[in-house]
Amino acid sequence: MRLYIAVAAGGFRRYATYRVATFAGVFTNTVFGYIMAYTYMALWDQRPRLGGYDLPEALTYVWLGQALLATCAMMGGGFESELIERIRTGDVAVDLYRPADLQLWWLAVDLGRAAFHLLGRGIVPMVLGSFVFELALPADPLTWLAFLVAVTLGVVVSFAIRFLVALSAFWLMDGAGAAQMALLAGLFFSGMLLPLPVFPGALGEVAAVLPWSSLLQIPADVLLGKHTGWDLAAAYAFQAGWAVALLAAGRVLQSVATRRVVVQGG
């Protein structure tokens, strides 16, 4: 356990070393936040209470999306590109002979990264957004705490999906295609473009039960106070269920991959 804490700390610090990248990320998130906020304002002006959200809630949703974009790696950009590269070049051999578990190792790395991204790329855009727009942020610290739990679960679900994507490189030899598909699915089904309840009919219902809704839709609804009491417990259970199922699938794939597949290169 102390090993994985040390690995997570390393994951945090290695992202912290790239200050310019962090600054550029904050800038991009903020600019996109403004663009999307004005787009939402136009939309909500035409259709007030779209998807059950009033305007301040919708704007809060926009800025949360920007704040969590890097944290929950909705468009990728976490450990997976590195792991894919290591599988492609054969460097993964180094990871495999160590007395450590591959999945836990990368989970620790990714949790460290997510913690940094939440602090380094989450807070500033949110604050900058709240200066200009009227947001529906809760006053109760317990709601914030509940939100943090939902974000943590969201990061684990996001990790589990990306771990599966990365392992596909053992068979495909190049994980770029799989990563591209995961990016599109993540962007759409996490609710990054529009909140999932806005989608009409079957599309919205399907999107709500897919694992990606754990990344943004559920944490956002928790912060907006849409899940309380048993409903909150059900939301957590939904996230945790996907996390366990996908991590287990990752374990199976990992053992097949390491047993049967050739480690590349000399």
């Binding site: 390393g10 610090r13 290695r14 070393t17 790239y18 054969g90 460097d91 051999a93 180094v94 002979y97 160590r98 000399g266």
Partner: peptide, 14 residues
């Protein structure tokens, strides 16, 4: 102990 000359076990950014 294993040393692969063309690979590294060290943490690149740290």
């Amino acid at each position: 102990g294993v040393v692969f000359g063309q690979r590294t076990t060290l943490w690149w950014d740290l």
